[in-house]
Structures are given as C-alpha cells and as structure tokens.
Design a protein around this nucleic acid. Structure first.
Length: 111
RNA sequence: CGAGUCAGCCGGACGGUCGCAUGAAAUAUUGAGGAAAGUCCGAGCAUCACAGGGCAAGGGUGCCGGCCAACUACCGGUGAAGGCAACUUCAAGGACAGUGCAACAGAAAGAUACCGCCCGCAUGGGUAAGGAUGGAAAGGCGAGGUAAGAGCUCACCCACAAUUUGGCGACAAUGCGUGAUGUAAACCCCACCCGAUGCAAGAUCGGGAGCACGAAAAGCUGCCCGCAACGCUCCCUAUAUCGCUUGAGCGCAUCAGAAAUGCUGCGCCUAGAUAGAUGACCGUCGAACACAGAACUCGGCUUACAGACUGACUCGUCAU
RNA sequence: GCGGGUGUAGUUCAAUGGUAGAAUGUCAGCCUUCCAAGCUGAUUGCGUGGGUCCGAUUCCCAUCACCCGCU
C-alpha cells in the first residue's frame, strides 16, 4: 500500500461512510464509493479493538492482506475497511480469507 | 535443607524471501521501550511588544548535610514506627501569636466537683484518694504525712528541659530544674519558592478584514508604579516548508568520593513518521507465550510485566 | 499530545470528620372477587489501595474507570 492509494482526508472518510455501499464479513465491514481520483483505500480501527499495540497489529495485517489484491481491484472506487473488535484474535491467514471474501461479495474484483 | 530480605541485569538470537519509512539512488544504511504508558513533579525551547519593581490573592515545599541545569527527585545521616533478624516505611517546622474542634458517653474534655472524704453542722469551708465514661481525666506506682487529702516530702520510673561535652548540622550524652491533653493531611503562624500558556507552542509562504498620524483600542490573574513604537491588531485556508532531532547524549576506562555524582581521556551517531512506518511466511536453538507502540526533547516519580540469570545478607533446623 | 471534571442503593440525587438519607424500584403483608391505586414493613451502599486521626463518604497521596474541551 503506497502513499498514493491511501485514503487520508477526514472529509473523504465521512463521504464514504455516508454514501458508500456496505458489505460485511464476520470480523470486518467493507464500504465502497465512487472515486474521482482513482483507487483509494482507508482503514478504520476503533479503540474498541484494543490498545495501541493491538490496533497497530490489526492495521498491519489488513495492509498485508490487501497488498496482493491491489492490482485486481476496481480502480474507480474508494474503499474503507472497518475492523470489528473480534478481529484482534485472528491470525494472518484468517484475515486474508475474510478480506478476499468481502471484496468478492461487493463485486469489486475485476477478474 | 527450609523460610525470607535487599540489590543488579536481560526483556529472544541467527539466517532466507517479500513488503513499509528514511534517502537523489543502489543488491547499501538505519528503524520503538524498560516502562515508549499514566501525565504526578522538575527543566530546556517557544510565544505572550520589551525590561522590571511593590502589594494582594492563589499554589507548593517543610529534620540535617550533600548532589544536580533544576526539582517535592536522588544519595548519606538523624529521629520515629514496624519486624526475632536481614531490612522496610515516614508531608518529620511551630499547639504559652491567635481562633476553632474533641460527636456519643461522662460531674467535668484545660475548664472544674455529681456521688464521695474531712472540719463544722442552718449557712459555709477544705479536698481530689475512691466511683463511673471515654481514644484521652489533671504525670504513674509505693511509702511517709494529714482532720481528710494533695509532688506536700521521699525512692524508682515518664515527659519537657537550663548548663556542659561531642558533632559542619539534624541530633546524641549529661540532667540544675519544671509537671495544663490531643488535633496544624482544621483555619493558621514562621521560613523558602512559584508570571501565564504549551510544539495543536510558534515561524515562513498565501488570502481577507479593521484602525490610523497622535490619541483611542489592545497589550495574557487583580491593584499600583514604571516602560514604547509607527505601523499595529484580528481572522481564515492549509499543513507546503521549518520547528524535528547532536543531546544537561550514549558506551568503556582512569581518578576523586561512603554514595548520589563529578573531572579527564578514547570511541560512537543511535527512529523522525504526519490516517501516522517494524509486518507476513519459513528454518535452527528445549520453549519463547509477559506488560506493552515514539509523535518537541531531557531528569525523576508512579503504575503494568511471562520467564531467565547473578551477587550480598538474615532467621530456623540438622550434621561436623 | 495538552488541559479540565466526575465516581454514594437496581436508577436519579443529598449529606459540617461522629449510626449514610430522600424519591423511585424490588420483595412481603393488608385492602379487593381479581388487577391497579392506597397503607404498613423489609431490602440493597460511599470505585480500589494506602496514610493522617480516638474515629474518614468527607482530609492527604497513589491508582482504576468514565466524561468533556482544544484538533
């Protein structure tokens, strides 16, 4: 996940939360909305997930899980992945599985 | 062998592939902690136009000496409390400067007399031994003494304490003498210290508004004094650049010191992100699984913590 | 990151260092053919750990949880 494709602005997050389409899995939710600037991905991990160490770990696992999917995602959308508290107990393989599942359900994989 | 006290130290290591930050770039370099945490203290730094003084209010500290940039921290000592001991803990000045409080109980809570005892016996006077309450009751206990009693006198003890001696000092020893409680983490008194706000400070760049030639406004807790210039003040967007990492820095050694700490020499450069960087997979080691993630930077304090290691000391039991 | 505040009954709030109280809730009884209302009684406690004090919800220190502001 390079800097160019990260979603940064608070306003952009607000837009996605308000307008985006939701699709869920057991431990995370995907929101997607049309983007004018190409592919953008943001992560949202609230304090309910755990302390700073746990939250950082969740964000790293999500980034690592998204990395191989970047080339096959639909480039016209902005995405926000919201983590639920239960995700903190999962390992890397399970996170990967859920991320793939949630993008498939949303129909945003191009191949 | 058992039970315990104190101190120190570590906080996975090595290798491979992919990925992230730094960087002009590279097959290169570096890349979270002992607590980065809590934000409880102390500083640097910055702004409040500049440099100050006095009074008030508010807050903090409070045995002594040392150490430090500074501190309420740290080191050593004194005293008190706890423990058989090693050792641990302590906001530890002042209660004849003043004011207050001491519920209930009890006659009475620093002021006296309910029951009682004695003289007298209508009134009155002298007492505080005994009684009951309470956390605390007029220093304790015994003897002498007396009308009954009383430190009234005496022996022993308790508290305060003149003087002398020792110590830089807190204080310790001595003990002429004295005998009206506790509470200052109640108000307070005394001594010393403290301007406010925090890097979201603030600077540069960009945009806008107001006042204006000698006055007003404003100028960072209140009051008084004092001080100045011509441009000043305010707002907004935004985080683009700076602040942003070489620092009261770290490691080793010598020396001084009882220690905290300091001097000198040599070596080292050791995160700097800005939606916020350390991860994934695999192999080896017996196992690595704790608490936990830098956000301007340091010195402390407090709290959390799997497991591993080292040293010193105390008590008990057994054997020699 | 910086600053500020609050913790008391199941709930909402009081209380000068001296037995923690009110409303409401819950339970039991009375009343009623039954329910509601009413009446009587009971029930449930100071976030946690230390210290000062004869005695602490109150004073002091530490800690935990929650809330608010700046962005």
């Amino acid at each position: 996940m390079t800097k160019q494709i990260r979603l940064k602005r608070r306003a952009a997050f607000r837009y996605v939360f308000r307008k985006g389409d939701k699709s869920g899995a057991k431990d995370l939710t995907l929101l997607s909305a049309r983007s004018r600037e190409g592919l953008k991905i943001g992560l949202s991990v609230s304090k309910r997930v755990g302390n700073a160490v746990a939250r950082n770990r969740v964000k790293r696992l999500l980034r690592e899980a998204i990395r191989p999917l970047e080339s096959v995602l639909n480039k016209d959308y902005m995405y926000v992945i919201v983590a639920r508290p239960s995700i903190a107990e999962l390992g890397f393989a399970e996170v990967c599985e859920q991320v793939k599942l949630v993008f498939t359900r949303a129909g945003k994989l191009t191949c």
